[in-house]
Amino acid sequence: MQDGLTRSLPIASDMKRLIRNTLCSATVLFALLPSSAWAHPHEFVTMQVRVVFNDEGQITKFRYNWVFDEFFSAYAVEGQDKNANGKAEQEETDAVLAEILGNIQKIQYFTKLETEGLAPVIVKAKAVGSTMLDRKLSITYDVPFKSAFDVKGRALKYAVYDPEFYIAMEHKDAGQGVILENAPKNCSWELGEPTPSEEIEEFASSLGREDTGTPDLGASFAEWVSITCK
């Protein structure tokens, strides 16, 4: 009786087998996918970058405002919560800001600069202020250039990203991401959307490194901003 039953439903059982075997093959191929398919940030930063010009129309510094996600904010502030009252007081968030700046100085505050010829050199950052708003830590600090940079005739491009992509860093939405301060007329900025495809090939050689992060995974998600003055 049973055999009769199965025989009367050959298509159903064939389909089942086909589906199962397709899934199995898919697993094997899936396991072979390069780790770039698994972009994996744990912390998120929303940025606003103020590009500050001097009266000669040259860029002198970037003023960064970074807002961290709630989870990272709690982690960061907890470490400075000396009185352990579960609240973030001004001295405590300021201490966090100072510590962060000390830690990320050696990687130029996650900043990459590009231009024709010599790119500006970043020097030691200065803290501006910090707050805790809606459980999100917000820090503001200046990243000065060693010497003022003249944008006329050549665009300055920058990106702020974590190469490892442990931290995802994005500009604020709706044209709020970049502000040109004291800029001459005819200066403008443009944010290029990330183009992962360019870096994809490099990832192919990084199988099995998913936890260590691909050295340049963050680059494929980097937002490059171009500042030009006519």
């Binding site: 912390e43 990272f72 982690y75 960061a76 470490g79 966090v96 510590e99 962060i100 000390g102 830690n103 990320i104 990687i107 974590d162 190469p163 490892e164 442990y166 931290i167 099995g208 490194r209 936890d211 260590t212 992060g213």
Partner: peptide, 21 residues
Amino acid sequence: ILLGYGLMQTTFDAPIRSMGL
């Protein structure tokens, strides 16, 4: 073995995470 070795190395030579905090 390769995976374990690679992961082990990262615990000694960690990149900056969590803003170094």
